[in-house]
Amino acid sequence: MSVEHMRQSVNCIELYHVEKSFGRQRVLKDVTCSVAAGEIFGLLGPSGAGKTTLVKILTGQLSADRGEARLFGVSSGRLSRREYGRMGMVMDELGLYERLSCRENLRLFARIYGISHSRGEELLRRVDLGDFAGFPVNRLSKGMKQRLALARALLTGPRLLFLDEPTSGLDPSTAAKIHRLLREEQERGAAIFLTTHNMEEAAKLCNNVALLHQGEMVEYGPPGEICRRYNHQNEIFLRKKDGTLLRLKNDGSGADLLQACARENQIESIHSTEPDLETVFMELTGRGLLA
């Protein structure tokens, strides 16, 4: 089965009208969405929006009050070792054994899954930790720990990855390495469920994003499409080499002027008024994602 075919036909995650309350507080309200194989899905929202609760429901750590959450077609409350073996996780708390080495951490989980130790060695090299295989985890930097947790999540060659803020607090070079790995996993056909505050990361990586606000999904779709949907001004800013700034309507009326500037090689830069995801979120909820 080709990745493209899997993308079209298999939903790794399906959420139907999921609701969850803790006491009187409604944490999730009527959440419905799906994540297909080979898709990177971003769940965006500020702290307390319900992201972690949703991940816990999906992974069978919590049960939904109403609605249904399904992984690989199985209700999340009935997940067996088979389904757990098909998913990998990197949560906010990495859950690594600090006194054990990178190699020993991976060996432990390789033994649990009944897979060869050489797979761990291969993954350590893949996440650029081959030279640190014998290092105890408590001597690694945050970025290295994140990569080790990612290597552990990839041990079984999972069809679904849950990643909670995988690049939070990391330097751009380490973040880029993690992005590259995620792209490789996507190309392999794995679905990736990503929770993040990082709008740039979401816009760059995700096929679809959902904006979660106080437990409610306020927007859902491809990031570019969402941003275009909220491009109310629909204008283009053109800066010429002589410093002049022109503001053109993006409806074809300024096409002649644009062409003329291009012909005369006068264009310094062109920007559209299309908002970013942060701006869209602010427009929808009246608050920022980092609030």
Binding site: Q61, Y84, M91, E93, G95, L96, I112, Y113
Partner: peptide
């Protein structure tokens, strides 16, 4: 406290 137990449980232990 370090959530290693949760990772073991999610791995099927």
């Amino acid at each position: 406290e370090t959530h290693t137990l949760r990772m073991l449980h999610l791995a099927g232990v």
